[in-house]
Amino acid sequence: MGTIRITKQFNFETGHALFGYDGKCRNVHGHSYKLSVTVIGTPITDTSHVKLGMVIDFGDLKKIVKEEIVERFDHATVFNRNTPHIELAEELTARGHNVILADYQPTSENMVIDFAAKIKARLPEHIRLHSVKLQETDSSFAEWFASDN
């Protein structure tokens, strides 16, 4: 049996601000992100296995991505830990808002790298992460490919 790639897509809303940026995105704003996660593997051939024919159960992949990414980032605001927005972040947190202080500038490029690492760490041993695509707008996205890293 051949190697197969499967993809699961997710949607979530996240706010952010780009510290030090010279354009509008230095302001706090948000996006309706679309995340596509593609894994690669060989379908299960054991006829006694409940998941016969699957590379990975879509539900299992969904659980990993929801726990690592969607539940954490959905309706959160992400700031670079070194941002001057730290007082705003502390105020929002004190008021019960979900604020993430990242060790990186929260661009789509850096977020997709972070997401790939989180997903890879949770995948079963026989499944490889092939790619992660994070779409920020209808016309803008960042992609991470295992073959490039």
Rank of each mutant, 00 (worst) to 15 (best):
A116I: 04
I6D: 10
Y104A: 01
K24S: 14
E90D: 14
V50K: 10
S36R: 05
G53D: 08
V50F: 04
D46C: 12
Q135D: 04
D60V: 06
D60R: 05
N82S: 05
V50N: 05
G20F: 03
N27Q: 14
V37G: 02
G59V: 09
K62D: 12
D22R: 04
V28T: 07
A94H: 07
E87K: 06
V132S: 05
D138S: 13
R122V: 04
T47P: 10
V99K: 07
I6N: 03
A76M: 03
V55T: 07
I100T: 04
L61V: 10
V55G: 08
V28D: 01
F10K: 04
V112I: 13
I86S: 03
Y104G: 04
S32Y: 02
G41H: 02
K63D: 13
L61C: 13
G15P: 02
V55F: 07
H126I: 05
M111E: 11
S108E: 08
R81Q: 15
A117G: 13
H29N: 10
P84Q: 03
Y104S: 08
N27W: 11
I4F: 12
K118V: 08
V28S: 00
P106I: 03
E90M: 09
L92H: 03
H29E: 14
R72E: 09
I44M: 12
N27V: 10
R26W: 01
A116C: 03
G41L: 02
R122K: 15
I113Q: 09
M54Y: 15
H85E: 15
E91I: 11
G15F: 00
C25Y: 10
Q105D: 11
H126G: 02
H29D: 12
G41T: 10
